[in-house]
């Protein structure tokens, strides 16, 4: 019985982190689903979101929630502009090896943004204003109020994204674009603009995740590397391009990490995700939701 309370606490933490991973992985899967581009700069959009919330809450003195909303909005715009500036040549048939081009250009963008943050903010860790202070008493369990707020906001962001995807004209068009670009154009859909919106939305979700986790894990230029790698792990284990896979995969990863920390050692926290990936791919090579589409 003695170990149940700390185990429950770890599992709760795992689920909280899992929901925020889900936000980030959903953004990555949205970009991959619509544009067929693996965005290597996804972690840096996470980092940008964290810095923007830091600037808003610490430097401008705004409420942390305003900081998070600002992070989402600014990263959305930056994401759209980056897509327009860097990925447009793919759709204009200006490059021969489109997949390789997209990989290299987003990889370059990642390095550029990381070093840009280093120049502007320096290498030091910074901490934005937390969403809330104190703990929430849940009987046997106490959880940091800031984390509860973060997970609630993550769920709201995800619900809003899923609503857009499933219930609006924009979402239907994005799903259509993910299946057939030429057929979408025949409908009168501006595939280039919609592609930029999809990239902006995906980047904004990473930015939101960064802003939500910034008070927990602090803000520094290379903070996006590990979350980005975990997002790749999630979308591979959940099946590339599957929304359901991204969400369930994130929660599973969060829980496995917390169980690993509890039963084994916290030192190898990041290693558990890769162990999980290896096991799942050995059993289900196409991932948990193998073969399913971005539209599920």
């Amino acid at each position: 019985m003695d170990f149940l309370v700390p185990l429950l606490a770890q599992l709760t933490n795992g689920l909280i982190i899992g929901f925020i991973y889900a936000l980030m992985a959903l953004g990555l899967t949205l970009i991959f689903g619509v544009l067929k581009v693996i965005n290597f700069a996804h972690g840096e959009f996470y980092m940008l979101g964290a810095y923007i919330s830091y600037i808003a809450s610490r430097m401008l003195g705004l409420h942390p929630i305003i900081g998070i909303i600002a992070a989402v909005a600014v990263v959305f715009i930056i994401g759209m502009l980056m897509e327009k500036a860097l990925l447009t040549p793919i759709y204009e048939d200006k490059v021969e090896r489109k997949d390789e081009y997209a990989l290299l250009i987003t990889f370059g963008l990642s390095i550029f943004l990381m070093n840009g943050a280093l120049v502007v903010f320096g290498p030091y860790q910074k901490s934005p204003e937390p969403l809330a202070s104190g703990v929430l008493d849940l009987g046997v369990l106490s959880v940091s109020s800031g984390r509860i707020y973060a997970v609630v906001l993550a769920i709201i962001f995800m619900a809003a994204t899923l609503f857009i995807i499933n219930k609006t004209w924009l979402g239907t068009a994005l799903r259509a674009l993910s299946q057939d670009r030429d057929a979408s154009t025949i409908m009168g859909i501006n595939a280039k603009t919609l592609g930029s919106i999809a990239f902006g939305l995906g980047a904004a979700m990473a930015g939101a995740a960064g802003a939500l986790l910034a008070p927990v894990f602090l803000v520094f230029p290379i903070m996006g590397v590990v979350p980005a790698i975990k997002s790749f792990v999630i979308i591979i284990l959940g099946s590339m391009g599957s929304i359901k896979g991204a969400i369930y995969g994130s929660l599973l990863l969060g829980i496995v990490e917390s169980l690993g920390v509890f039963f084994l050692s916290p030192s190898y926290r990041d290693g558990y995700s890769f162990l999980l990936l290896i096991i799942i791919l050995l059993v289900k090579p196409k991932g948990l939701f193998g073969g399913s589409q971005w539209n599920n």
């Binding site: 799903r175 299946q179 057929a183 025949i186 539209n295």
Partner: peptide, 13 residues
């Protein structure tokens, strides 16, 4: 409007 030679319905919609 244009009717493509290949199948162009959106299969998952």
């Amino acid at each position: 409007s244009f009717l493509l030679q290949r199948v162009s319905v959106f299969p998952e919609l």
